[in-house]
């Protein structure tokens, strides 16, 4: 009986302790915020199309399957787009993420606002800073809020993974841009 109680205590205590730690971590400043930065050997004007053009977006945003234009597709604030992402962690299901451009200043910065009902809402900001000598620093900042309680609890685990994915995508973008810069025109 003593051992049964011990087993039950451990099996209850482990998830409980995990939940308490996650709850505490979820209170940190910058919760839900992910940031990645990269320097690219190309001027901002050459990088900008890679942030706008659907075909080019698919080359560096991993798991992006399709980009559909919304009712207001003209470039600028208010333009809408739907990103169709493949989610291999959800049996390969296709997830539609509607984005609205909330801030548009080519070739310096653009902000996409995303909102998926019952899942998350937040902003993805791309900021291009010319460094001189044809170099540019691209900063990507994501700030999201999760609507499901379990996702809110898991935020301290989700955000670092989102940041990791962001870094991998930016590395791919750098390669793609720099390859296109050196390719004969």
């Amino acid at each position: 009986m003593k051992w049964v109680l011990r087993i039950v205590a451990i099996l209850v205590a482990l998830p409980l302790m995990g939940a308490v730690v996650l709850l505490a971590m979820g209170q940190r400043s910058g919760a839900g915020r992910s940031h990645a930065s990269i320097e690219i050997q190309a001027p901002p004007e050459h990088i900008w199309p890679w942030l706008e053009d659907s075909a080019r977006l698919k080359q560096w945003v991993s798991w992006l399957v399709e980009v559909r234009d919304g009712p207001h597709a003209a470039p600028g604030a208010g333009a809408q787009r739907v990103f169709v992402m493949r989610d291999d962690n959800n049996g390969g299901a296709l997830m539609e993420i509607p984005f609205t451009i909330s801030d548009y200043a080519p070739p310096a910065h653009v902000t996409f606002h995303a909102e998926v009902a019952g899942s998350f809402k937040g902003d993805e900001v791309y900021r291009l800073t010319a460094l001189g000598n044809g170099r540019t620093r691209l900063d990507q900042v994501g700030q999201y809020q999760y609507q499901m309680w379990i996702a809110r609890l898991m935020e301290p685990l989700i955000t670092p993974q989102a940041e990791k994915k962001m870094r991998a995508d930016l590395t791919r973008l750098k390669q793609a841009v720099e390859q296109s810069e050196t390719a004969p025109r």
Binding site: D87, N89, E124, M154, L157
Partner: peptide, 19 residues
């Protein structure tokens, strides 16, 4: 299942390679 859930909550999704 937990890791799948965490990864599927990444706004721009990610693959199945685990940290």
């Amino acid at each position: 299942r937990l890791w799948r859930f965490v990864y599927s909550q990444i706004p721009l999704k990610d693959g199945v390679e685990r940290d």
